[in-house]
Design a protein around this nucleic acid. Structure first.
Lengths: 318, 318
DNA sequence: TTGTCTTATGGGCAAATACTCACACAATCC
DNA sequence: GGATTGTGTGAGTATTTGCCCATAAGACAA
């Protein structure tokens, strides 16, 4: 992995160029003239500003259709919050749009003066959301990971995002130095009894809000691709009726946890209580649809951030 | 202003197009295809979204605030250029940051192929700026001092920076072998009539750009500390309403020159015409605030390099 | 110091975008 | 009824932008 190592002064210039371009509406030629650089360099500065996430574009218009879908979903499934973003018909990305919406929703929570406990799951969607989060200082809050952050190979799991978010918001973070799935139920108990782990588990139960991804269990299930479970285990789960996985735990199409199998060894915290916490799933796409349906049916979540297409599919008479 | 009366559905489409463009990163062609409209219409949708303020761009960088302030100052006070640098909250230095910014601005001017005449004032801030100037060969330009460079003790004044800059940029320099303040109005006339001085004064009037410091007139006014005026003269100036000094000349809070007193004996050149030249003051800090206000009110300058804090103070409703 | 490697710069070009114009259609006005 | 005005559309065109590549500049080890 190559480290870009971008100096502060470089980012400063990039921000300048980005400001001149997006806020002041200059062309790249004008920026080049004003900054005394070539147009090509100006272009590079602007694109650097974009790629470094300095430039945030927000659309301040609730598209009627999306609002409508959100309202319907909220009513039909008795959810606390629903956010529906437009779908890009051509794109196959499972993060596009929802990641930004999730980042916005997080920001809304983080702006709270009162200290909150923020639970964080894992997954690609969540990672993308955190990346889009604007830095905001909120040392009053606590961020707690709901899943272990140790990869099967012993490294910190790539899609565990607790460190990224803690860094961005300058809050105290409580990672869970565990594998996602222990080697045996006994080992899980042993691990959970550890002095370092117990407080984290307790804190996770007190979360005011949690953001979770929903993992599918298709052939390229994230849990399998990232090496947390074997192919055989994946197939066994599917045979047992599992359709999705949340913080490592597998559920059937009604949101009921699968008995036995890997679920006996999942070391993650439990999903915070839907009575006391807002538990928001961030998920979109046909692949995740069964999982979203399951999560809703089983009342595993009471909040949802998804896209138009998925929202429509959810509302379609089953 | 005519209200176009845009229907909701129209704005909805615009938002959708804007979303596809800015968030999903589609080209207008793709948007056109997806929404089943012509490319031109897609373009119109996107630009409608922008002009209706649906698209909000935010820059997540400290610099963004500075640029905002600069744009406001420029507009409010009708200045040709304004540069605002971030304030380091801890530091009390009056040169930090602005010196670098001034050096950068000078460099931009010096990069010009066409010969320019660069007027230079005096003062600690300017000296710091010159120190930070990167050496650059530009023999096509001329650097002219706007103030005398002879100290009361006969030596070259320490804070006269013409020699430093001329040396750095390898341009022809035109120092002014005069005291800043002559001993009498008559002596001033005599000095100005000298064959060596006259061309320098004439050149100073032709300056394309000038960089000036603004001196306060507090108890530790640079003019007094450096021995150019006596304590009594300082007090007399203050009694006469003077709040600042530029190239040795004192001005009241509206930027009007003080009548009589030391001003009758100031041997400096006049500030170049704001019609033909860009006259840039480099100043920051609470102490200099009244002076900056005066310089702006009196249109003594049409460019400013300052810091965030000072910029905010300048914009605060008086 | 020299050679080599990496990184940054500016020229050129194709793609993408903004703008202008002419026209079609509809509602309104005379 | 016909003219007028406003609004939307598509075509053509100038400008702007993104990207590739050759080259220059800087870093670093020998």
């Amino acid at each position: 992995m190559s480290k870009p190592e971008i100096t502060t002064s470089r980012l400063d210039d990039a921000a300048r160029a980005g400001w001149l371009y997006y806020v002041a509406g200059n062309t790249q030629d004008e920026i080049a003239a004003k900054l005394g650089i070539s147009r090509q360099s100006a272009q590079r500065m602007v694109s650097l500003a974009v790629s470094e996430g300095l430039v945030k574009v927000r659309l301040d218009h609730p598209i009627a259709h999306c609002l409508d879908l959100a309202a319907q979903l909220k009513k039909r499934f008795d959810l606390k919050m629903v956010e529906v973003v437009p779908t890009d018909p051509g794109s196959t990305s499972t993060t596009l749009g929802v990641a930004d919406a999730a980042a916005d929703e997080m920001t809304r929570w983080l702006k709270s003066e009162a200290p909150i406990v923020l639970g964080i799951g894992t997954g690609r969607t969540l990672k993308a959301a955190i990346e889009r989060l604007s830095p905001i200082e909120c040392p009053q809050h606590k961020v707690v990971s709901l899943t272990g952050n140790i990869s099967p190979d012993g490294s910190a799991a790539y899609y565990n995002v607790i460190f990224n978010i803690a860094d961005k918001i300058k809050a105290r973070s409580f990672p869970m130095p565990l594998p996602v799935i222990a080697s045996s139920p006994e080992e899980r108990e042993l691990l959970h009894a550890q002095a370092m782990i117990r407080p984290v588990l307790e804190l996770s139960a007190q979360a005011n809000v949690a953001f979770l991804g929903i993992g599918d269990l298709e052939d390229d299930a994230p849990l399998f691709v990232d090496g947390f479970i074997s192919r055989d285990e994946l197939l066994a789960l599917r045979r047992a009726g599992a359709v999705c996985e949340i913080v490592g735990r597998a559920f059937d199409r009604n949101g009921v946890p699968i008995e036995g199998l890997t679920n006996d060894r999942v070391a993650s915290a439990h999903i915070p209580s839907r009575e006391t916490a807002t538990v928001i799933a961030i998920a979109m796409g046909a692949k995740k649809l069964p999982g979203i349906v399951a999560a809703i049916k089983g009342s595993l979540i009471n909040g949802l951030i998804t896209d138009e297409q998925t929202a429509e599919a959810l509302l379609r008479p089953a």
